[in-house]
């Protein structure tokens, strides 16, 4: 009998085995075991951040940001181009910023997300909207009437704090493209683990983020001291606790800022050097 390859011959849905494990048995995972051995993390600790601007040759501006826990985001910026349908969404006299956020199908832990599935698309669209809200205050859109700027972020690997990394990378890419901006938007994520006395932690890794009861992502324009994005939720706590979390997050943004600036300077120097080399080659 010929085999029908289009039909999946397994059960319609699958369930993780942990659900059926006897109650009280704690599933032992390698990484969680490691976590317990390690000393409790300093909540103010930032994970090492690596940023590089201007690495894609085809895009006008591009940036790559990697966080210590394995988060990798690649961003490209295009523009300004003539808007396809003038004045559709933006008021007359200002440009439009279009943001896109995509996750690689293999970005997450566990089972592969089917690309293009409804839930996946929904999550990407929400992240794209958050990205746009974080970047719009930083870009001088009034300088680009009837034009559109496009930024696309591609999440290669999700190791926690992905949206924050995408915000930083996207603003680097825009700056690298030579778009007029007020400042870089620096993103920073925080989370609070369960427990009554748990403190907020900066830049959580993926396991920490999964266990967290409350999450927060902030974006800051450090030179102007303006907050461009606040997005968070979870277990309720008093406004004072949230204020403390916000302060911690904004402090984190201030500390990340020099790293991003350095990477921009390096990209500019590299570009100068290649231009000079090309010029000497032409005269020789």
């Amino acid at each position: 009998m010929p085999l029908d390859h289009r039909r999946v011959r397994g059960p319609e849905e699958s369930q993780p085995p942990e659900l059926w494990a006897a109650a009280g048995e704690v599933p032992v995972e390698g990484e969680e075991g490691e976590d317990k051995d390690a000393a409790p993390r300093d909540p103010c600790d930032l994970r090492p951040l690596f940023a590089r601007a201007g690495l894609l040759s085809q895009a006008e501006g591009s940036a790559y940001v990697e966080l210590g826990g394995g988060t990798k985001v690649l961003c490209a910026a295009w523009g300004p181009r003539e808007a396809a349908e003038p004045g559709a969404a933006a008021p007359a006299g200002t440009g439009r910023l279009l943001c896109e956020f995509r996750r690689a199908p293999f970005a997450g832990r566990g089972a592969r997300w089917r690309p293009g599935s409804a839930s996946e698309r929904e999550a990407e669209r929400e992240a794209a909207a958050a990205l746009q809200e974080a970047l719009e205050p930083a870009v001088r859109l009034a300088r680009y009437p009837r034009a559109r700027l496009a930024v696309s972020a591609l999440l290669l690997q999700d190791g926690g704090s992905a949206l924050a990394a995408a915000i930083s990378a996207a603003s680097l890419a825009l700056a690298d493209a030579g778009v007029e901006m007020y400042d870089l938007a620096v993103g920073c994520a925080l989370c609070r683990s369960p427990g009554p006395a748990a403190a907020w932690m900066l830049q959580p890794g993926e396991p920490e983020e999964r266990r967290a009861v409350a999450r927060l992502t902030v974006a800051l324009l450090p030179a102007l001291n303006q907050v461009s994005a606040v997005l968070g939720g979870g277990q309720g706590s008093s406004p004072d606790a949230w204020v403390q979390a916000l302060r911690l997050g904004l402090d984190g943004c201030h500390r990340l800022y020099p790293v991003l600036r350095q990477s921009l300077l390096r990209a500019a120097r590299r570009r100068d050097a290649t231009a000079a080399a090309a010029a000497t080659a032409a005269t020789a």
Binding site: E133, E136, P137, A138, L216, L221, L224, N225, Q226, V227, S228, A229, V230, L231, G232, G233, G234, Q235, G236, S237, S238, P239, W242, V243, L246, R247, L250
Partner: peptide, 22 residues
């Protein structure tokens, strides 16, 4: 109703000063 905050989000094109957020 007890005055606890469960979520927050900035909306709109502009940015906000940290002090005014508090």
């Amino acid at each position: 109703s007890k005055g606890a905050l469960t979520s927050m989000k900035k909306v709109g094109k502009g940015s906000l000063d940290p002090e005014s957020i508090f």
